[in-house]
Amino acid sequence: MLRAIRYFLREGWSSLWHNKGANLLSIAIIIVSLYVLGVFLVLSTNFNHIIERWSEDVQVNIFLDENLSEPALLYLQERLSILPEIGEFIYISKQEALQRFQILFPSLQTLPDEIGENPFPSSYELKIKKEYQTIDGVRGLASRLKSLDGVKEVSYDLQWIERLSTVMKLLRVIGIFLVGVLVFSAVSTTANVIKLLAYARKDEIDIMKLVGASSWFIKGPFLVEGMLQGFIAGIISIGLLYLSYRLVAYYLALSYNLLFGFLLFTFLPLEYWLGIIGGGTLVGLIGSSISIRKFLRY
């Protein structure tokens, strides 16, 4: 078994080397598909990070009715304390809200006097527990809060996150489609390249069959050749991805220091690297096994 694997590896590598031209074409096509896949993975990983980070700061405010009685306020407070999503909450009275406004906007300090009354409603500031800091979680909580007695309005700043996650969903759909097309073309290119190589060695394959070589013994080196194509393409595409990532990060950091420096904060984690290299190897394996089959019929 080990001897056979060694033989497959040696023959596969030797054929890859001897047919550099055709194999390079195949490797290049696999690189393109893996590179595009990688770009989408980098983007989606980073968008996910951003969404996670922004979601951590989600705060929900509920504004209360003007004439809420003391018992009604206590009842509301009790209801808030039993809601599982809420970590802690603080009550902001009308007076406190006014003071905050005056601190934040000193130039508008006299505005309430001019209006003649305190226009700010009393409210609760709610901190959401980490496990509920998702868009759906916050949206669900807000709609339940709205239905509580004494609650006039619920506000939460999720618009940006919602938009970003819509962009991400779109990106994912485009990515899946594009990568699908590219993977298909990579598989068919590998299949055709291996078919050409097998065709050039048809006599050799026939002789092997005549002297008693099994199908596995004949196709093993071709499968290894296809897998090597994908493996090499996987490694090169990871290298290219990293280079592009560093370049883009560098230029964006120069131009839009804060925003994009924040956007491009991570490269792909190790398991994605392995996934891309494994994916490339699989593309090569599928391509070569499709093409070699017809040469092995007895």
Binding site: D203, E204, M208, K209, L210, G212, S214, F217
Partner: peptide, 17 residues
């Protein structure tokens, strides 16, 4: 393949690799 492994065959056109 197993049938052929029990045989030795000399082909008219040699069939060498």
């Amino acid at each position: 393949p197993y049938l052929r492994r029990s045989m030795g065959i000399v082909f008219q056109d040699f069939k060498l690799l």
